[in-house]
């Protein structure tokens, strides 16, 4: 593990300028959206004086670069600003909503891995068989499906017709008391509290959105697994193993192990992407997640929720990438030893 620490240090060195760049761009982008928050907050009947007073209070009367500077100063003190829509500090809002999105995305991605990797391996090792054909067709179809549409179709089938899942309204039944917050994942928290009613409700609300995300995102994972494992199986060491008479299963297992870095990379990219990318599915299921919060912010000139979300998801992606780099060290003996 000798090369790991300097590598991580170098990585950290690049993160700060990048985060700064992301904040800078999003700040000026959101500020350039027409619409004055002060006017929006007070409504159409407000007097000019009231609007001016509120603008001063919010710091909107300063020049844009000054406003950005104040935002940065507050940020360093752990203050992400206040959302005028929820009238609560953005940090509080996000701490509540981020786990909601994370729970959805994590389970969705787990399902996608469970579908994508075995299918991909199977289709790579039986290129010309029916399994290969099905996997090929699935890979192409899954990439073409709009997730928000698939969500609607699933709702129609499983809620409207079969009535086996609850209505697509949030994360838990209104009648069920949510468990005390520990991780923010309702399923995990209810298990920790030993509250089976809450767990059943949360799990049943998770079913359809997780199924949607899982089915759609299994596509890219399947394709990546298939193409990398296929390449590994055509490589010299695999041919040598076949010639030496090793069992087929073992050859495939070795090929998969060598394909793992690419598969882990695509999974990590999807993880980061889905935090914001799952927003359409969140909207369909009224999930109340972080992505939905940010989109509402953009559509209503509410800048701080957007900045907070962009910052948090960028940091999250960076951590995922870091974890992936550490994983590489663990699985690939050629790196850093």
């Amino acid at each position: 593990m000798r090369g790991l620490l300097p590598f991580l240090g170098q990585r950290m060195l690049f993160i700060l300028p990048q985060l700064f760049g992301i904040l800078l761009v999003s700040f000026f982008l959101i500020k350039s959206i027409p619409g004055d928050p002060a006017v929006l907050m007070l409504g159409p009947t407000a007097t000019g004086d009231a609007v001016a007073a509120l603008r001063t209070k919010l710091g909107l009367d300063h020049a844009l670069p000054m406003q950005f500077w104040y935002f940065l100063v507050d940020l360093v003190h752990g203050d992400l600003g206040t959302s005028w829509q929820t009238t609560r500090p953005v940090l509080e809002d996000l701490l509540q909503r981020f786990p909601a999105t994370l729970e959805l995305v994590t389970f969705g991605l787990l399902l996608a891995i469970l579908v994508g990797v075995p299918f991909g391996v199977a289709s790579a090792s039986h290129e010309r068989g029916w399994l290969g054909r099905i996997a090929n067709a699935y890979g192409l179809t899954a990439g073409a499906l709009p997730d928000f549409w698939l969500a609607l179709v699933l709702i129609f089938v499983f809620y409207t017709i079969l009535q086996v899942v609850p209505a697509p309204l949030g994360r838990i039944d209104f009648a069920v008391l949510p468990p005390p917050t520990v991780t923010g994942f309702l399923t995990v928290d209810s298990l920790l509290a030993g509250d089976w009613a809450a767990f059943a409700s949360a799990a049943s609300h998770l079913c359809l959105p997780v199924l949607t995300l899982g089915l759609v995102n299994a596509g890219p994972i399947l394709k990546m697994t298939q193409s990398t494992v296929e390449r590994m199986l055509h490589s010299d060491y695999s041919r040598y193993e076949v010639l030496s008479g090793l069992p087929r299963g073992m050859v495939v297992r070795h090929a998969l192990r060598n394909a793992l870095p690419s598969i882990i990379t695509i999974i990590s990219v999807l993880y980061g992407y889905l935090l914001g990318g799952a927003v359409l599915v969140e909207i369909v299921f009224s999930w109340g997640g972080a992505g939905q919060y940010a989109v509402q912010g953009v559509l209503n000139s509410d800048i701080y929720p957007v900045l907070g979300f962009v910052l948090l998801s960028a940091i999250f992606s960076l951590f995922v990438y870091l974890a992936v780099d550490i994983l590489y060290f663990a699985i690939d003996p050629r790196i850093g030893r």
């Binding site: 992301i22 761009v25 992407y273 990318g277 359409l280 992505g291 989109v295 953009v298 957007v306 998801s313």
Partner: peptide, 19 residues
Amino acid sequence: ADVMQAFPVFVFAIALVAS
């Protein structure tokens, strides 16, 4: 380009259209 790609694509696109 790094900064642009670090954005959540969807939120970025919505913000662009809105602005």
